[in-house]
Nucleic acid binder design. Structure first.
Length: 571
RNA sequence: GCGCCUAUAGCUCAAUCGGAUAGAGCAACGGAUUUCUAAUCCGUAGGUUGCAGGUUCGAUUCCUGCUAGGCGUGCCA
């Protein structure tokens, strides 16, 4: 549990502004939001805030004057971690921290270990994250892999900052698509038994995996199912197909390091009576009307450009009904916040689902939907292939991991795939460069980070060989860490808890990935220029060992959030 | 047509929700190796942030309009 220096500074600034207001020196109604951030250059101190700039208009004073007033209410001497506060440029307040702050950071990291970076901001609130939710009609594709990595990591982040988040997979095991799965398997089954002139029906699934699945049934059980009526056979193959594909998807996810806490069946939702309840609710609220032999929902009343059908001409529900019921169900389960990750092919559904949630009378900000954008696979020749599942041609997650594993081994394959999926913002298209992914060199960020970890580990392993016994941190002279590089490293380490919190709340998992790369990018140069283990300088060695341990801890904690292994040795 | 996303160095991308001089990696060029694991490091070079306006102390970030690319727009889920 980390109490960040940021929250301390925030409190100090807040108190100073409040004091200035009550002293009548600032005529503003209340303490505003105080934006502040680590600085980019050391000249500007360690943290800086432009809060005075923002208040200028409201307080009717020049920004520098406001900054003066605020700073006058901070007693620097009372805060040992603050060395100096000055005002620069148009009115920035720059806070220079003392070296004591750096040492305190190291002590915190060493003391907290695995817990460094966590906090209790979420206050135990329950959050549900639904992701992947691929149809049980085929293997997981690349975008599902990306969604799996992102969703899994977001849950890790949310749990790290004190929420109780769970992973949930919605199984679309009812409706037209799985019917067509049944008919597709039926065709393949009969073909396997030698029947000719059959074709996969329009909208069916042509993938090779169904041919294999049907062949296996034919091999093991022969033509027994031909005696059934067509409808019965299709329905049987549908259910077996769903079970088979679902098991396959689960295995792929497990291989990828993702385990879902809850699998919710659409069929179960349909059978629960909830669809009828919400339809009645919609009817009572006059959201429904009949036209063209179907039942429509007034989506236009919510700002959409057209209404949509909820009960088809043939009496079947469209997917909107179970989907709305599913979200009602999520709400009834008591989640404080629900986050859905949808694939790029579902973007038309985003505003509609929001509207249904509104129509159900649920709070607008309760549901959050992010689109996981397309993944372009850049192959060895540099060609792009798009991953559209509907066109029948797609690369599966397993195929990707297989491909990587062939080059760099199974464990690294998963690490690299996860990192590559996590290094871009969710809503941007992602180019997956396979050539780069299998490179065991510095241009591969995963190896770069893992190598930094391995170096830390190795140093800590070799202390005895060099006649050094690591001491407890309170017996170490941390002030011997004099190099600017060491300071920069510790500063970076200190940012980790705030970053974890920010990433979780902004749902921006890629920031962790970038951070780790930057941290490794500070450690490697330090390692090259400053030898840690040096029997001739025992005291300094002790101090550098603490720094090494701290770097190792943060790398380990960060990688754990991303679900990437921290390996001690080269494979 | 309408909607969503994207556009930043030659390439792939960052930039902590509007802050100070826009940062990394790759590729290019020049260096470091009897190492605490070279999976590394040091240096050089690289920019009118797609275009045009607007908002303001201040814009890669917000607004409007263009341009280009991707995706979506079913009585499929």
């Amino acid at each position: 549990m980390t109490d960040t220096i940021q929250s301390e500074i925030h409190a100090i600034l807040q108190a100073a502004i409040r004091a200035a207001i009550s002293a009548g020196e600032l005529s503003i109604p209340d303490v505003p939001d105080i934006p502040f951030s680590p600085t980019k250059t050391p000249e500007h101190g360690d943290f800086a805030t432009p809060v005075a700039l923002g208040l200028a208009k409201q307080a009717k004073l020049p920004p520098r004057k406001i900054a003066d007033t605020i700073v006058a209410h901070i007693e620097v001497a009372a805060h040992p971690q603050i060395r100096q506060i000055d005002i620069a440029g148009p009115g920035f307040i720059n806070i220079h921290l003392s070296d004591e702050w750096l040492y305190a950071t190291l002590r915190t990291i060493v003391a907290e270990g695995d817990a460094y970076g966590t906090c209790d901001k979420g206050a135990g609130q329950r959050v549900q994250v639904e992701f992947v939710s691929a149809n049980p009609t085929g293997p997981l594709n690349i975008v599902s892999g990306r969604a799996a990595a992102v969703g899994d990591t977001l849950v890790n982040l949310l749990n790290a900052v004190g929420y109780q988040a769970i992973r949930e997979f919605y199984v679309n095991d009812a409706g037209g698509q799985v019917e067509r799965l049944g008919t597709s398997i039926d065709v393949r089954y009969r073909q396997a038994l030698g029947e000719t002139g059959l074709q996969i029906p329009e909208g069916g699934y042509e993938g090779e995996y169904l041919r294999e699945f049907a062949q296996a049934i034919a091999d093991a059980e022969g033509d027994t199912y031909l005696q059934l009526g067509a409808a019965e056979r299709v329905s049987l193959f549908r259910d077996r197909g769903i079970a088979h594909i679902l098991a396959q998807q689960e295995a792929s996810l497990e291989r990828f390091g993702v385990q879902f806490d809850v699998w919710t069946s659409e069929k179960a939702i349909r059978d629960s009576g909830k669809p009828e309840e919400i339809l009645q609710l919609f009817r009572d609220k006059q959201y429904l009307y009949e036209a063209e032999d179907a039942t429509w929902f007034r989506m236009s009343a919510f700002g959409d450009d057209k209404d949509c059908v909820v009960i088809r001409r043939d009496g079947e529900y469209t997917y909107f009904v179970p989907d709305a019921a599913y979200h009602r169900d999520k709400f009834d389960r008591g989640f404080h916040q629900v986050i859905n990750f949808f694939g790029p092919d579902h973007q038309g559904h985003v505003s509609r689902l929001h509207n249904f949630v509104k129509a159900l009378g649920l709070p607008d900000d309760w549901l959050e939907i992010s689109i996981i954008q397309q993944v372009n696979f850049v192959n060895a020749e540099g060609h792009r292939e798009d991953m559209s599942k509907r066109r029948g041609k797609f690369l599966t997650l397993d195929a990707l991991v297989d491909e990587l594993a062939g080059a760099i081994g199974e464990r690294f394959a998963v690490d690299v795939a996860r990192y590559f999926f996590l290094m871009r913002a969710n809503n941007t298209h992602l180019d997956f460069n396979l050539e780069l992914a299998i490179t065991e060199a510095n241009e591969n960020p995963v190896f770069y980070i893992q190598y930094a970890f391995a170096r830390c580990w190795s140093i800590l392993q070799k202390t005895a060989e060099h006649g050094i016994t690591p001491r407890r941190i309170d017996k170490v002279s941390l002030e011997l860490l004099t190099e600017p590089m060491a300071h920069e490293l510790i500063r970076k380490l200190s940012e980790f808890p705030a970053l974890v919190l920010f990433s979780a709340e902004a749902r921006e998992v890629h920031r962790i990935a970038h951070y780790l790369h930057e941290l490794a990018g500070l450690f490697h140069p330090y390692y090259n220029q400053h030898r840690v283990l040096d029997a001739a300088h025992q005291e300094r060695t002790q101090a550098r060992l603490v720094l090494t341990r701290a770097v190792q801890t943060v790398l380990k904690n960060g990688l754990a959030l991303l679900g990437i292994s921290a390996l001690e040795k080269r494979m």
